[in-house]
Amino acid sequence: MSMPALGLGTFRLKDQVVIDSVRNALDVGYRAIDTAQIYGNEAEVGEAIAQSGVPRDELFITTKIWTDNLSRQKLIPSLQDSLKKLRTDRVDLVLIHWPSPGDAVSVAEFMDALAEARAQGLARQIGVSNFNIALMQQAIAAVGADNIATNQIELSPWLQNGKVVEFAQSQGIHITSYMTLAYGAVLKDPVILEIAASHNATPAQVALAWAMRLGYSVIPSSTRRENLASNLKAASLKLSLDDMARIAGLDRNERLVSPDGLAPAWD
């Protein structure tokens, strides 16, 4: 099952806010929803999906295993708990959210446990998130590159993460971009604004279309129905080679997410 190019992110969305966001997203046409154990909203995401009436087989649901649950003993039970909250018997993709702090649980151990979860039918695909090249190499050694569906990383016009992208793609590992809009900061970039004006598009559509043109999946979040619908139109925005080159020139290695104790040594 191929990964959708555009889905809904739910980071920082809680309670009725996330229910409304997911319901509105599904209503305007989204079919991919990204959540995580640490977001504390899996139950609400599951409720919104149930309320929507969209058949499960039309959806692509992603969740992520938190660092407290990476050991062989905890990973599968924690995923089973996530499935109960999401009201489904399997997710389409399950990711390791962050590498184990201090390597307390080895990459080999949690990747083997993740592969076992898939073998048990709890997930259709498995992958990683926030992995640098060295960690991807360890994951590949554990389960093989063919068994790693994606590396979900922070990536925006201001943080293009070239080394990680190049390595992942050389191994056939798909890239999922989070924070593609850099908390909205890139929407004020003069180059993005100029390109948006030339296409009669929004700056958000330009940033998302740029990432998708490069072959990445994107998972922007929004609490406003009109923005959800607008972002969805990014999939049909055709940027020119000149547009792409101009955005490529915006890279400034500006990282917004690098929590102490969790983040690896970035490439």
Rank of each mutant, 00 (worst) to 15 (best):
S78P: 06
S78D: 02
L79S: 06
D81H: 06
S82Q: 04
S82D: 03
L83P: 02
K84A: 11
K85W: 00
L86W: 03
L86R: 02
T88E: 07
R90S: 05
V91G: 01
V91E: 01
V94K: 05
V94T: 10
L95S: 09
I96Q: 04
I96C: 06
I96S: 03
H97S: 02
H97N: 04
W98N: 03
W98F: 06
D103N: 13
A104V: 07
V105R: 05
S106F: 07
S106T: 15
V107A: 08
E109M: 02
E109Y: 00
F110C: 11
D112C: 10
A113D: 07
A115G: 12
A115L: 14
E116F: 06
A117P: 08
Q120S: 12
L122V: 12
L122W: 13
L122K: 13
A123N: 12
Q125V: 01
Q125E: 14
F131R: 04
F131A: 02
I133A: 01
I133K: 11
A134C: 02
A134R: 14
M136F: 07
Q138F: 03
V143Q: 07
D146M: 05
N147D: 11
T150M: 02
N151G: 07
Q152A: 00
E154C: 04
S156F: 06
W158Q: 04
W158I: 05
L159M: 09
L159F: 15
Q160A: 05
Q160L: 08
G162R: 15
G162K: 15
V164H: 03
E166L: 00
F167W: 14
S170C: 09
Q171V: 01
Q171N: 01
G172E: 09
G172Q: 06
I173M: 07
I175L: 08
I175D: 01
I175P: 01
T176A: 11
T176N: 08
T176V: 12
T180M: 14
Y183Q: 15
G184C: 08
A185G: 01
A185T: 14
V186D: 10
V186H: 09
L187N: 14
K188Q: 15
D189K: 11
L193W: 01
A196G: 10
N200G: 15
Q205Y: 13
L208A: 09
A211S: 15
